[in-house]
Design a protein around this nucleic acid. Structure first.
Lengths: 400, 400
DNA sequence: CTAATATGCTCGTGAGGCGAGGATAAGGGA
DNA sequence: TCCCTTATCCTCGCCTCACGAGCATATTAG
């Protein structure tokens, strides 16, 4: 008999999974959290904690292990992912390589693989990623509940519309999911790196955080309570295409005066009267390496750091974040010309921000930020109320 | 005996008021909604609808009236604010006047008053507003549950830090609440106008909306599902202080190259080689009035409209909104030089946005947007779960 | 006047959270 | 070694509240 999804039934289901979802979110936020601490956090009575953990254990979502003793009193247990529990596959499609990993509900990455592109053709790259997904599916079977992909390009309505560093135009990336059975989540790499910083990185204490990442151009995101502002079609965060720069310069994106053109390797080359570099990132690192014994390089780096600082200040005026995290070559760029950056930053702030300007700190996740972020978003999906209900239903069916 | 707020009790209370809060939010969103439609929307069974409306009637939160018949079937009722229900006082502190009104939970404004400033001194203005609050308190007594104030200045940590159009520095505005008994909500006027557009204005269908208002400078906000991005300290939305302009110009805010300086009356005066106007808004309207028979005015307006369009394009790149709403003199400014605006807008968009650029529409609420927004925010507070519990407790005490 | 339609109301049922009380597992001190 | 203290876990009866079936009610269409 088919059970019709009546209004009331839906509500009851939602209520049933709500606490479970919250518990798993806590386990994700703080891997190795004890059951007692969890009960405090969520204001559960000990009876409820017993009931919920038992339920989640039966559902193969959590496992318990004795916690290391830390004083008097009955020892508690630590909550860990169940060895047969759900996992997500996270992948990050970058210019120079791609990487994938599997994450259980505590957010730890396993089976991390970094692979060079054989060819940069979309079909070849996507076939390789798809093989990675198929490997994950072979190894984890039904435990694999979602594929979450970070991509170094602009995402619009769940499609990649442009990845200039890869030289790609519009591409349907969902082909990596092996027949479309698995939920597929797609995000911009800078956005996802910002999520990772906000949730497990350098901005965990912030409610509103701004993450900016300089690679070829500038990307980033604002997160509020760990959730990114993705805009109407998921394309928000194109900070590099704010017209902070010279309006006479046209950007490859089609617009004019983009900030992008002032803060990456292309800008450095312009200041040094050199032709635009083929690989702006490597070029930037080369210039940064010789800053100390080359005054012209120092000057160029200072100019770029100042452009970065001034833009960051404008964005602080705009978003009023608790903290700004800098990723990619943004961090070394700032370090190499800290005074220029700081001056431009302070000078661009509205007066009332200057007494306590938001700190600008280096990102904590390095070049794995997007991968961590993809895992986080994937796990958010898997631990959502609806997906938990689905997991439970699948488990029941499997056990018949 | 004092009842200790145990974890369990808190959870039960929260659950009890959750549905009530949702119902009131629907009544607010769509005044005059019928009980039957509401039950559909919230997926309530008719039994639950009966129970909830009865409860809210007893709590003096809702009243029911026969609905106009619209076909077969038993007629339903429309849900209206209870004649003895809670209200909020909304006020808007502007450069040239201040206004206040009272709103019941359907969001309709009553007792709207517009008053000129006698003096612009903070103490005088705030005393006048405070008298308005006292009048509201005298008239509505305990029904008055919150005061929500919009102010044409920068708000930081619930304080006004600067209101350059009023010539004010840091001022504690909470003195208007008559002893601090009433909850006091403070917001930037452009932010609140954006909330009003998103909830009841020209952006009701959008999930992500960008509202920009040009008066003296540019303010605005991004709203997601009707909630504004306020930042860590409530100071977000200072769009005018993004460095879209000439870096050699210093802005009164302390920063350089602010967009502000390119899109208001000061910019028009600069283009016309006239001194900065004392009242940039009136000046702008004067210029706009003579656009048709004055080529130089037309040229200046075109330049300013282009600066506006280019900036809007950058912000669309950044935020990826469904729609952009223009308030203040932004709307007539665009109309007066539509071609310039459109060209600059299209030219500043990233290529993939150009196939379906977000529409730029005039704001629906005119110069009452901030007042409506303040009312909305106040009502959101009053219909929050905690405030409803408080209202019920007060009512019980009153009836003893 | 009757059938059709749409909505409101009553009430028995049941799931699940609540909390008190007791059980359990450690450390600390005499 | 024993017992007390501390901290946590578990059991179980209670009770609230949403659910939904069934019926009542109020209107229109024909």
């Amino acid at each position: 008999m088919i059970s019709v999804a009546s209004p009331s039934r839906q509500r009851a289901d939602a209520a049933r999974w709500h606490t479970a979802s919250q518990v798993l979110a806590q386990v994700h936020r703080q891997p190795g959290i004890t059951r007692a601490l969890l009960a405090q956090r969520l204001q559960l009575t000990s009876g409820m904690a017993t009931e919920i953990t038992a339920r989640l254990r039966d559902l193969r979502l959590l496992a318990e292990a004795p916690a290391p003793v830390q004083g008097r009193g009955r020892p508690t247990t630590v909550l860990r992912p169940h060895p047969e529990g759900p996992v997500v596959l996270a992948a990050d499609l970058r210019q120079e390589d791609w990487r994938c990993a599997v994450a259980a509900i505590d957010g730890q990455l396993h089976d991390l693989q970094v692979r060079q592109h054989g060819s940069r053709e979309p079909t070849a790259v996507l076939a390789a990623v798809r093989r990675g997904v198929e490997q994950g599916r072979a190894r984890y079977g039904r435990r694999l509940r979602a594929v979450s992909l970070a991509v170094a390009g602009t995402v619009h309505n769940h499609h990649l519309v442009q990845a200039s560093t890869l030289g790609w135009g519009p591409v349907d990336l969902s082909v990596v999911t092996d027949g479309g059975q698995l939920p597929f989540l797609l995000g911009n790499d800078a956005t996802l790196a910002g999520v990772a910083e906000a949730r497990t990185g350098a901005a965990t204490t912030a409610t509103t955080a701004l993450h900016l990442i300089v690679e070829v151009g500038v990307g980033g995101t604002v997160t509020v309570d760990g959730r990114p502002m993705t805009g109407a079609h998921g394309a928000a965060g194109e900070y590099g295409h704010l017209p902070f720069g010279d309006r006479t310069r046209r950007c490859p994106c089609g617009a004019r005066g983009c900030w992008d053109l002032d803060v990456d390797g292309r800008a450095l080359a312009r200041h040094l009267d050199e032709p635009p570099p083929a690989d702006p990132r490597r070029y930037t690192r080369q210039i940064l390496a010789r800053v100390n014994d080359n005054p012209r390089a120092q000057q160029a780096v200072s100019a770029v750091a100042a452009a970065l600082g001034a833009g960051v200040a404008g964005l602080v005026n705009l978003h009023d974040p608790d903290v700004v995290t800098l990723g990619g070559i943004g961090a070394p760029l700032r370090s190499a010309a800290a005074a220029s950056f700081d001056t431009a930053y302070a000078d661009g702030l509205m007066a009332f921000h200057r007494t306590q300007p938001p700190p600008v700190v280096d990102a904590a996740h390095g070049d794995k930020g997007a991968l961590y972020g993809a895992a986080i978003v994937g796990l958010d999906h898997v631990t959502s109320e609806g997906a938990l209900a689905q997991w439970a239903a699948d488990l029941r069916q499997e056990q018949l």
